[in-house]
Design a protein around this nucleic acid. Structure first.
Length: 156
DNA sequence: GCCAACGTTGGC
DNA sequence: GCCAACGTTGGC
C-alpha cells in the first residue's frame, strides 16, 4: 500500500466537507504529474494526508483513503466549468482522477511550520522548495509521524 | 498583494 | 530542441 499527500484549498473543499459528504471525486487536477500519480499508481485502500493549502493555518487536517480509481474527471466535459477541456473526449479522457473517502479529521491542523520543525520529517516531499504538486507520494514513515502529530492534537 | 518557483506555450 | 514569455501555485 502506498501513502500520499493531497492538497486542497480549504475554501474550495476542506476535510470538513469530505467528512460531511463521506466521499468525493478528487476533481479539477490539471497537472500531468499529479494526474499520472492518480491514474497509474494510486490503489484502492491507499491512505492520504489531507492538506489544506491557502488556509490559515496551512497544513495537514486529516486522513482520507482512496476508494475508487480510474474515474474520468467530469469537469473536463462541462463547458461551463473553468476546468473544461474541449480537447478531451469521453472515449479517451485526458483527466483521470480517483475517488476518496473520509477517514479521520484532526482536532486541529498539523501546520506546515510544525512539519518543518520536526527533524524526522526532513526530506518530506511536501516540504521541498518550490513544490507545487497537489498530489504527491508520501513516505510511509513520514505518514505515520504526521498522523501521530495530528492525533496528538486530540480527536473529534 | 507580493513574489519565488515551476509548468506550459509557442516562436524560431 | 531551445528558451523567453506567460500563467499558476501557494506561502507569507
Amino acid at each position: 500500500m502506498r501513502h500520499w499527500l493531497c492538497k486542497s484549498e480549504e475554501t474550495c473543499y476542506s476535510i470538513a466537507d469530505l467528512e460531511r459528504d463521506g466521499r468525493a471525486g478528487w476533481d479539477s487536477v490539471r497537472n500531468y504529474q499529479a494526474r499520472n500519480f492518480m491514474r497509474d499508481q494510486m490503489k484502492v485502500g491507499d491512505l492520504i494526508l489531507y492538506y489544506h493549502s491557502n488556509a490559515d493555518p496551512t497544513g495537514v487536517a486529516g486522513i482520507a483513503r482512496v476508494s475508487k480509481t480510474g474515474v474520468a474527471d467530469p469537469t473536463q466535459f462541462d463547458p461551463r466549468s473553468e476546468f473544461h477541456d474541449p480537447k478531451s473526449t469521453k472515449d479517451d479522457p485526458t483527466w483521470i482522477m480517483v475517488e476518496v473517502e473520509f477517514v479521520e479529521r484532526f482536532r486541529g491542523v498539523v501546520t506546515l511550520a510544525s512539519l518543518r520543525k520536526e527533524p524526522s520529517l526532513a526530506g518530506m516531499t511536501v516540504l521541498a522548495k518550490g513544490n507545487r504538486l497537489s498530489v504527491m507520494p508520501c513516505d510511509p514513515d513520514h505518514f505515520r509521524i504526521v498522523r501521530a502529530m495530528g492525533r496528538a492534537l486530540g480527536k473529534r
